[in-house]
């Protein structure tokens, strides 16, 4: 089943004089339960692509369909509701609300959906157990580590059981240990809940958790590699591919 379909996406920033092309005809088809990493040099249009896929930004031309729903049909608040119900987001700088506890941050999307108290409690316990943050549910974001904050953010993204999670450099602010635990979280999300994950990353190690890596260069897809064997092999494949197309490499 196709979860997300993007066809002929282009994006040009600015007006006629200052036009900066960011995407030139990107086509992407993502199946349910896929785990895709988007890589590419800085400025290649990764964040732009992700923002368009999630409806935060409109493409200059082209079309995005998520779970059979063309995003262009949705406007304003409907789009917001769609994001809240069908999509999950994880950001580089966590973006938790400082005034809410970890638990409250996690269930915020459920609260907005006016779910039952019992259901919320159940969900938060489940996710807390799954991602190893059960013991800090009542702490405030500034009282817990960056890795824990990001796991909170992943839990929040998962709380309304979305079909797709979109993450822009979720490990960008984390050390390798925490990165590993976040990527394991995404792995669980894909494996146990059959949720689709699309993440943008610079980090080869993080990308090696995915099933497929899409390389973006100058706003178009340069190449794609599939994972066939174990993670170590895939990691080496990604490194090779990256060298081949001349992007910068990330030390592990």
């Amino acid at each position: 089943m196709v979860m997300l379909e993007a066809s002929q996406l282009t994006k040009v920033y600015g007006n006629e004089e200052t036009a900066t092309p960011a995407l030139n005809g990107v086509n992407l088809s993502v199946e349910k339960g896929d785990f895709i990493a988007i890589m590419g040099p800085s400025g290649s249009g990764k964040s732009t692509l992700l923002n368009i896929l999630s409806g935060l930004d409109q493409p200059t031309s082209g079309k995005v369909t998520i779970a059979g729903e063309p995003l262009e049909n949705l406007k304003g608040d409907d789009l917001a509701l769609f994001r809240r119900r069908k999509l999950g987001f994880v950001f580089q700088d966590f973006n938790l609300l400082d005034s809410l506890t970890v638990k409250e941050n996690i269930i915020l999307p459920m609260i907005l959906e006016k779910k039952e108290l019992g259901e919320m409690e159940e969900k938060v316990q489940e996710l807390g157990g799954l991602f190893g943050i059960g013991s800090i549910l009542n702490s405030y974001p500034y009282q817990v580590s960056g890795g824990q904050q990001q796991r909170t953010a992943v839990s929040r993204a998962m709380v309304n059981e979305p079909g797709i999670i979109l993450a822009d450099e979720p490990t960008g602010n984390l050390d390798s240990m925490s990165s590993e635990s976040i990527m394991e979280c995404f792995e669980k999300v894909v494996r146990e809940m059959e949720t689709t994950v699309i993440l943008v990353t610079h980090d080869v190690f993080a990308a090696s958790y995915a099933r497929e890596v899409v390389f973006l260069k100058d706003g178009s897809i340069h190449s794609t590699i599939q994972r066939s064997g174990d993670r170590e092999t895939f990691l080496r494949q990604i490194l090779d591919a990256q060298r081949a197309f001349g992007g910068r490499t990330h030390a592990l």
């Binding site: 509701l81 973006n95 907005l112």
Partner: peptide, 15 residues
């Protein structure tokens, strides 16, 4: 910044 972020995760204008 807070509301921008909340809007991203799906807070509607009436809310």
């Amino acid at each position: 910044r807070k509301f921008e972020h909340l809007h991203r995760i799906g807070l509607t204008t009436p809310e």
